[in-house]
Nucleic acid binder design. Structure first.
Lengths: 132, 132
DNA sequence: TCGTGGGTTAGAATGAATCTAATCCTATCG
DNA sequence: CGATAGGATTAGATTCATTCTAACCCACGA
């Protein structure tokens, strides 16, 4: 179910440029991914134009703003960018330093924290941290 | 239910020193806290010896290792140190940049992610991110 | 052809956290 | 009581991820 990078950008209202096309092409190749900036850099290195770090960050942040990807941060280390945008949770495999998705249907959460009135829940982040 | 800082350190097997005593005194004053390094620094500034940043980090990390506090990181920003060590979850109030605890009893999670055999769940982190 | 403005860039700057090597204490031993 | 060994503390440098800045490039329209 692969849609062309160009049309993905177009429907997100983002001008297609070399970097954005190359990054979208890598990210949206049909396999959902969790990539770090370094991994994305490596992947683009194998393509035509290797972008500067700054534009890679710019482009990833644009994609986030457009809702094409999501940023996931755990610990204080480098951020992950997740190509799955619908609500879901994560398993972090400490030994492999790898993120894995958990569909929302796999867990059921009953109960809600008490919140001040008028508050809205922006997101619910769940991470199972596992090791061997 | 306030226990003296000295006896807390002693039962954790940590030598009592000026900084460690001052920090423990501030952290374990009976009110559970979520503090950043900067807040801890501010608090210690009002006491006898203002420690260097390095030893504050050292001391907070020692306390973590000893199980006296827990580190919580969200986004890429500065870490929080949480004086509540038993399992619990968090609400993050984005508008106030404030963490709040949710007791485990307030939520029920049914279902577990599929894990490779032999894996153990180190922790389950849940953060409700809320805004006004 | 000349601007205009967005895209891209290298390199500097920022902020959190850690590392290093020197110095300070302090408990213990002679 | 004085020497000393080893942990505690320190200032400052260092690392790492990320963002900022100011210049440059380039496609497109007047």
């Amino acid at each position: 179910m692969r849609t062309g990078a160009a049309s993905i950008l177009e429907s997100a209202g983002i001008q297609p440029t070399r970097i954005r096309l190359a990054l979208a092409d890598y990210l949206f190749d049909g396999e959902h991914k969790h990539v770090t900036v370094q991994e994305a850099l490596e992947a683009l290195k194998r393509k035509r134009h290797l972008p500067s770090l700054a534009s890679l960050y710019n482009t990833l942040n644009e994609f986030c703003r457009a809702g094409l990807i999501r940023k996931v941060t755990l610990d204080g280390g480098a951020a992950w960018f997740d190509t799955r945008t619908e609500p879901h949770y994560h398993v972090f495999h400490e030994d492999e330093c790898r993120l894995e998705d958990i569909p929302v249907a796999a867990l059921k959460i009953t109960g809600r924290p008490k919140l001040p009135k008028g508050s809205i829940v922006r997101s619910v982040e769940i991470v199972f941290r596992v090791a061997k």
